[in-house]
């Protein structure tokens, strides 16, 4: 196999000993995998444990994961992958999206089945305590978008409680068509502003107490989806910019709706 054809780690680009990483954990999605080198795979898996995506279960329990958990695992898998493959310090938006998804889905699960078995359990954490996955490399944009597309394709499968998440996923899908060049993610104050806005919305989402609350917060959720969409657009624009001027123009365009 030519070197160029060898599978590469989605996160760091390594070609050594590439493994197939189940992005949402095997119990939640048996086939959706991404190539990762063993160190990146290990870091990813560590976060799957910390988030409660992986946990000690009997086979019966493992086969009983519901649609909400699968959706949550897909989003969190995407979030962890993005965070592992983003520029240092740029994972805040991904974290915000991941927490938003977690809160919304946990509320949904609580309303029907009681507190979900999934989700983070900080008391059981062993090992380092960094607040978010630390960047291990920079995901090639095309890979990043492919990941988003694949995850999005698996979401929104009929459960009305997934509307908010599906909206975010749709935003990812829309970006795919607009971008055709690989690039690198960049950092800017505008991105931080959007992240802050995301977090502000999260504060509202965090107060959701029931499905009724969820319905009442329809506007806020749309806002959240919109913010996620704008964030992703900005990231994409920055990634494809080849000059400072182009990047500035892209940022201007992206943040215009927020002014």
């Amino acid at each position: 196999m030519k070197p160029a054809d060898r599978p590469r780690c989605l996160v760091c680009g390594s070609t050594a000993n590439i493994q197939r990483n189940h992005v949402a954990a095997r119990a939640n999605h048996r086939t959706l995998t991404f190539p990762m080198c063993p160190p990146c795979h290990a870091a990813f898996t560590d976060w799957q444990w910390r988030l409660g995506m992986l946990r000690h279960e009997t086979p019966a329990e493992r086969s009983a994961h519901d649609e909400l958990e699968r959706a949550w695992a897909l989003v969190e898998g995407f979030v962890v992958t993005v965070a592992l493959g983003s520029e240092p310090g740029q994972s805040a938006a991904a974290v915000a999206l991941g927490r938003a998804a977690g809160i919304v889905l946990a509320v949904g699960a609580e309303a029907t089945d009681g507190p979900p078995r999934w989700g983070p359990k900080p008391a059981r954490r062993k090992g380092p305590a960094e607040p978010a996955p630390e960047a291990r490399g920079t995901i090639a944009l095309e890979d990043w978008l492919r990941l988003g597309l694949e995850v999005a394709a698996e979401l929104g499968a009929g459960d009305p409680r997934l509307a908010g998440i599906a909206a975010g996923a749709e935003a990812i899908a829309q970006q795919a068509a607009a971008i055709d060049e690989p690039g690198r993610l960049a950092r800017g104050p505008e991105l931080e502003a959007i992240t802050a806005r995301t977090n502000a919305t999260l504060a509202t989402v965090g107060a959701i107490g029931s499905l009724e609350d969820l319905a009442a917060l329809d506007g806020e959720l749309r806002e959240l989806a919109d913010v996620a969409d704008q964030t992703l657009r900005l990231l994409a624009a920055l990634a494809t910019s080849e000059s400072t001027e182009a990047a500035t123009a892209a940022v201007e365009a992206a943040v215009e709706p927020h002014r």
């Binding site: 988030l51 962890v80 805040a92 974290v95 927490r99 983070p120 978010a132 965090g206």
Partner: peptide, 8 residues
Amino acid sequence: PTVLDATY
């Protein structure tokens, strides 16, 4: 809110 594995 900036801690990914904080409880929901």
